[in-house]
Design a protein around this nucleic acid. Structure first.
Lengths: 224, 224
DNA sequence: AGTGACAAAATTGTCAACAATTTTCGGAAC
DNA sequence: GTTCCGAAAATTGTTGACAATTTTGTCACT
């Protein structure tokens, strides 16, 4: 493996660099996060690394135990389901609010995302569709204007991004979720508050169902 | 004001001592939290105080700005409403789960809380009723077994405890919420899943209504 | 071979001193 | 009296060294 100082030139705070690295998957679940190593990797002081670890532990991305250091927290399938249940009720709330508040330019934007999704699925672009998926949910949160809910959801997203991505990779999954997303977009853009709520609920119930009835390959964690 | 070293003998970590102090109201909203002062007050090193402030900022109890220190975050009424909206959907979820999973001994416990609430209201014991209120909601979260939701709710509770307490102090408020709580307890103990959900929804909708139609006295913040 | 004790190494926890920044305060200029 | 400047004070940010703890490695003993 490479051993360079790593991380881009821009002097981003350590916590955001480390958070992105974990979410991106640069660090495997359960991998130890040694303060001195991170200090070198991000060329930051150990105190800053330490502060970052405390913060990320608070966000649920990192696990810290007294005198035994920090490691990337691994999210079990059961916990991923729990997170999805919370997402269900909170994103449904945001969808409701978005259906109430959405404005003309935002309608155009959401419709645009819908078209792009259709195209991505038709073209078999799974990662592109996955990104659009994330973008759609994020925009709905923003349009909804419920900042407390949005903040909680953002934190949960970081924790479950690995499971979400694997789910998106399952064969046939995009074909299931695409019509759900399109119905959701239609409801929100038509200011149909109740239907927006229901569409989001149906979509996330489908996610939960897929997660639970999962023939997930073993998460072979090698712990050296 | 007293200037002693403060804080009980027990060597509790700084963050929990500080968190409790803020939630308890020992520090007023917007009050500055100077690291050196806290260091003396809790007889801890400045590094520990600093770590605690970072953690509490992450939890939303403290506001930190670069080079300008930390202060107790003040929660506006609008934000308290947002928090209550999130609580509504999450606690409804927990109430559902609790109605599904509740066991005999837990039923006895909840019924006991219900009786104590009735007694407290009859006797005009407002603070006692407020404590029972908190205990009931906490037990429902625990019985529900949805740890992700419970964790989010616990964090939000810390943020909104001030508003909650003031609401509880309004004349006539206990008379409104008591029957709602009793109905909630009955539904959960009877394993009536949907009704438990609805009872919690109605209860928290009433809380939100009370918060919004509020003749709250000015939060006179003196900033010296 | 297996086990336990013990030293060595690695790692985290703590602290105090120093640097950088912001705020406060006094006074000169108008 | 007000405004603007600059020095002093207060406060936060950063660094490095040291202490405490855990982990690893070694070796005698059974």
């Amino acid at each position: 493996m490479t051993e360079e100082p790593a991380e881009q030139m821009a002097d981003v705070p350590v916590v955001v660099a480390l958070r992105e690295a974990i979410v991106r998957g640069d660090f495997a679940p359960n991998q130890r996060l040694v303060e001195a190593d991170l200090s070198a990797h991000f060329s930051a002081s150990r105190a800053n690394v330490r502060a970052a670890l405390i913060e990320l532990a608070n966000e649920g991305l990192v696990e810290r135990v007294q005198n035994r250091g920090a490691r990337v927290r691994s999210i079990s399938v059961e916990e991923a389901v729990e997170i999805s249940e919370v997402r269900l009720v909170l994103e449904s709330l945001c969808a409701e609010k978005a259906a109430k508040r959405i404005k003309a330019d935002e309608i155009r934007e959401l419709k645009g995302i819908g078209r792009a999704m259709r195209k991505a699925v038709a073209g078999g672009d799974v990662v592109g569709y996955s990104q659009l998926n994330e973008e759609l949910h994020r925009r709905i949160r923003e349009i909804g204007g419920q900042r407390t809910a949005a903040q909680v959801l953002e934190r949960l997203r970081a924790q479950s991004v690995r499971h979400q991505f694997r789910l998106a990779m399952r064969p046939g999954r995009p074909a299931v979720s695409l019509p759900q997303h399109l119905a959701l977009i239609d409801a929100i853009c038509a200011h149909e508050v109740d239907e927006a709520h229901e569409a989001m609920r149906r979509h996330l119930e489908s996610v939960i169902a897929a997660l639970t009835s999962s023939p997930e390959p073993e998460t072979r964690t090698i712990r050296p």
